[in-house]
Simulated scan of single mutants.
Amino acid sequence: MINVSQLTDPAVRAFVTAVNDNDKGAFEEVLAPGATMSDDGSDRDITDWADREIFSSNGHMDVDSEADDGRSLIVEYRNDTWGAMRTKWRFDVTADGRISRFETGQA
């Protein structure tokens, strides 16, 4: 497992920290205006998805590995709704260091 503080990309590190701290404000701050996301290949509304899959269900990311300069992760993700599952995450980061899109799904 990789310690969150050792994740390579600062925006991805802030994203994972916000999820693990259940910090909705920090999560929203790391997202670029108009950010998009998909879950298992289907685009979702970020606000609705994050409320359901992260904040109301105590989502938590344990990072197993990273690639692509820290913008692709393999994660043991768990929440109170689904339990634990191995997932993959890919992030697009803007020049000013905010996440413009992320994609997640089962690994």
Rank of each mutant, 00 (worst) to 15 (best):
G59M: 08
W49L: 11
N79D: 15
G83M: 09
D51C: 05
S57V: 07
H60K: 10
F55E: 04
E53M: 11
R71G: 06
G83E: 12
S65W: 05
E66F: 03
V75C: 10
H60S: 15
H60D: 06
G59W: 03
R52L: 12
G83V: 07
L73P: 00
Y77N: 01
A50L: 12
Y77H: 03
E66A: 04
R52I: 11
S56H: 09
S57A: 08
A50D: 04
I54R: 00
D68W: 13
D80V: 05
F55V: 08
S56M: 13
V63S: 01
E66G: 06
L73G: 01
T81G: 15
G83D: 06
A67C: 06
S72T: 11
F55Q: 03
T81E: 14
D62M: 14
S56L: 12
V75P: 00
Y77L: 02
G83K: 08
V63P: 00
S57I: 02
A84C: 14
G59E: 11
D62F: 07
V75F: 07
W49Y: 14
S57K: 06
E53L: 04
E66R: 01
R78F: 07
D51S: 13
A84Y: 05
G70E: 04
A50N: 15
G70Y: 00
V63Y: 01
A67N: 14
E66W: 01
S65P: 07
H60F: 12
G59V: 06
A84M: 15
E76I: 04
S56Y: 05
R71S: 10
D62K: 08
L73K: 01
T81A: 15
G83I: 11
R52H: 11
S57P: 05
W82T: 12
F55W: 07
R52Y: 13
S57T: 08
I74N: 12
V63F: 04
G59F: 06
Y77K: 01
D51T: 05
M85R: 09
A50E: 10
I54A: 01
E66M: 05
W82C: 06
S72A: 08
S65I: 02
R52S: 14
M85I: 09
T81W: 09
D64L: 12
W49T: 08
W82S: 14
D80K: 12
V75L: 04
V63T: 00
T81L: 15
D69K: 06
D62C: 04
D69S: 06
V63D: 00
A84I: 06
S72L: 02
A50Y: 12
D69E: 10
R71Y: 09
D69A: 13
D80C: 07
G70F: 00
N58S: 08
W49M: 10
S56E: 14
G70C: 03
T81Y: 10
G70Q: 02
D64V: 12
S65M: 02
L73N: 01
M61K: 01
D69I: 05
V75D: 03
R71L: 14
D68M: 15
W49A: 05
L73E: 08
D80P: 05
D64K: 11
H60M: 13
A84K: 14
M85F: 10
S56C: 05
A67I: 07
W49H: 15
E76Y: 06
S65C: 04
